[in-house]
């Protein structure tokens, strides 16, 4: 029975990891927690849903369209709401409040357009179930894990091996020096938001395809849990976010089975609080020495 919980928990956890990486990417370059990320995830799921329902492109292309639209939406959000704050060198807290505001604007827009009730979403990777030992493996889960792992590897490759990734790391470490190298810092930030939005769109579509349901508020709790996963691993550190996501997913799966469904959401936060007491910078976080 334990193996079954592990497998279900990993499925959920890898998707949390995908959302958590979005928090970490943006935090890395801007030192900003993007609280609109949960709503972005819901936005991505709704775009995929509406494309599937209203066209005959099929789920694959619906997700591709959603990835592009959601990425552009987050770039747009940064352009109109956050970039002016950076230009005026306003305090970090202003940008934080702005992202909370954006979160509600996105969520309410989804409610106005799609209504606030839950809607059907097609099942993803539906090729039946099979048994390995005494673990029931759904093809949907295998698909979700495969797509998430590929995407996480792709994101890591972009950050570690490409020219734009090098620019992202440069902006993260010293934005002023980066601009002296001829790097257009705002473009790097836009690109980072695009990556965050795109991965949230995939995560939203995968989870909706698993539960076969979408809802404008779906991003709230998923966003908070992924955020706690990112903090758990050490925010700003990609492999930390992935590890944190897996821990949160596993914890949720075990809690739901052994303690009861009522505790499934609380357990992620209990773990977060306990970890932060012992490691304030997260599991993989480095000790930051504040320079004056």
């Amino acid at each position: 029975m334990i193996l079954q919980q592990v497998f279900d928990g990993l499925t959920l956890g890898i998707v949390y990891a995908l959302i958590a990486v979005g928090y970490s990417l943006v935090f890395g370059v801007l030192r900003l927690v993007n609280f609109a990320h949960g709503a972005t995830y819901a936005f991505g799921a709704h775009i995929a849903m509406v494309v599937v329902v209203s066209t005959n492109f099929g789920l694959f292309w619906a997700i591709i369209i959603s990835v592009i639209m959601t990425g552009l939406m987050t770039m747009f959000m940064d352009r109109i709401a956050l970039r002016p704050l950076r230009a005026k060198k306003s305090k970090g807290i202003s940008a934080l409040i702005t992202t909370i505001g954006c979160s509600y604007i996105i969520q309410n827009a989804l409610m106005i357009v799609f209504g606030s009730r839950s809607k059907w979403f097609p099942k993803i990777f539906d090729y039946g179930n099979f048994q390995i030992g005494n673990v029931l493996v759904k093809s949907t889960q295998v698909g979700i894990i495969t797509v998430s792992v590929v995407l996480l590897l792709l994101l890591t490759f972009i950050v570690q091996k490409t020219k734009i990734g090098l620019a992202m790391r440069a902006v993260q470490q010293n934005a002023k020096a980066a601009s002296l190298m001829g790097i257009d810092v705002n473009r790097v930030i836009s690109f980072t938001f695009f990556l965050g939005g795109a991965s949230a769109a995939v995560a939203g579509s995968l989870i909706s395809g698993y539960y076969q349901i979408v809802n404008p508020q779906m991003g709230f709790i998923a966003g908070l849990k992924a955020f706690s996963a990112a903090v758990l691993g050490g925010i700003g550190i990609l492999h930390g976010a992935v590890f944190g996501g897996l821990v949160v997913g596993l914890a949720e799966s075990f809690a739901a089975f052994y303690i009861g469904g009522g505790y499934r959401d609380a357990v992620a936060f209990i773990i977060l609080i306990v970890v932060l007491i012992f490691r304030p910078n997260g599991l993989f976080g480095k000790k930051v020495i504040e320079k004056v």
Binding site: K163, L166, A167, R169, A170, Q173, N174, K176, A177, A178, L180, M181, G182, I183
Partner: peptide, 21 residues
């Protein structure tokens, strides 16, 4: 710039590579 402002967690080579960005 004053105070060097190198990229602290990047290698010497990557710092130079960014110079040629």
């Amino acid at each position: 710039p004053e105070g060097r402002e190198v990229f602290p967690d990047l290698s010497v080579q990557d710092n130079l590579k960014l110079g040629a960005f």
